[in-house]
């Protein structure tokens, strides 16, 4: 069997197992807890045709786009700066790793107090989730550059700009894309959690509101749509990532 055919078959098998597990959860707990796969897909399709759903999706999308852009720029620049200055990297790396392991949700009230309710708080919360992994991966990529590359650049008398463009950037690009993939996932998580707590708009709000109003159909369908969107976005970034790592 050819490689793509095998992969497609494996993916279908995983999907089938997950669907059976989902149906099993429905049989076990009934419609008060979770709606079955077929009904959920139908309702999700209905949601995709409603303007109200797209208002919430747009709110989440806007917060995600802002937060991702800020986290990506801050993370890449911060990682480059720290990576080129070895002492600073040694000092900050464990601190950043420790911050990554902290439950950031506990900081959400502070962000709400500082930014007020609404878009800026959601963006800030997304940024604090997403910025650390890009910084760490960019930092380790810059630090891991083979010294011979930089020496060659010096021998060839490249200007700092040319070194950046022709040596540094190609050497760290693949790792940065890996970092951006993690950044995207975590930023999405941050934005959704932000919307679940003290918000009136967005997909996270729809999920938590469905539970509070005993509208499990809504919650299940929105969770499904979020998961599908996240997996698709990740697949796209992962494909880029793997191409770059091979090349």
């Amino acid at each position: 069997m050819s490689e793509p055919a095998r992969q497609a078959r494996d993916a279908l098998a995983i999907l089938a197992v997950l669907t059976v597990a989902w149906q099993g959860a429905y049989e076990y707990a009934g419609a008060v807890a979770v709606t079955p796969p077929l009904g959920t897909v139908a309702f999700a399709a209905h949601l995709l045709g409603s303007a109200r759903f797209w208002e919430h999706a747009a709110a989440t999308g806007l917060a995600l786009a802002d937060a991702f852009a800020i986290a990506a720029v801050l993370g890449v620049l911060g990682g480059l700066a720290l990576g080129l200055w070895r002492y600073a990297a040694d000092v900050t790396e464990p601190v950043l790793a420790a911050l990554y392991a902290v439950p950031k949700i506990t900081l959400y009230p502070v962000i709400l107090l500082l930014f007020g309710l609404g878009l800026p708080a959601k963006v800030a919360f997304g940024v604090i989730h997403g910025v650390i992994p890009v910084t760490l991966l960019t930092l380790s990529a810059v630090r891991g550059i083979r010294p011979v590359l930089l020496r060659t650049a010096r021998v060839l008398r490249l200007t700092p700009r040319e070194t950046m463009r022709h040596v540094l950037a190609p050497a760290v690009l693949a790792e940065i894309v890996t970092g951006l993939r993690l950044c995207f996932s975590l930023t999405l998580l941050g934005v959704l959690i932000g919307e679940m707590f003290a918000s009136q708009r967005g997909l996270g709000f729809l999920i938590i509101n469905g539970i509070n109003n005993h509208d499990v159909r809504m919650t299940t369908a929105v969770v499904l749509l979020v998961v599908v969107a996240a997996v698709l976005a990740n697949a796209l970034l992962l494909a880029t990532d793997r191409t770059l790592h091979r090349g």
Binding site: A33, I208, G210, I211, V223, V227, A230, A233
Partner: peptide
Amino acid sequence: RALDPLLASYYAVPLFVFYPLLVAL
């Protein structure tokens, strides 16, 4: 190898969105 796509996208899914459903379950 078969589970590779699942492992690769596992942490891309904001797992936390399942929590309300787990509470319902």
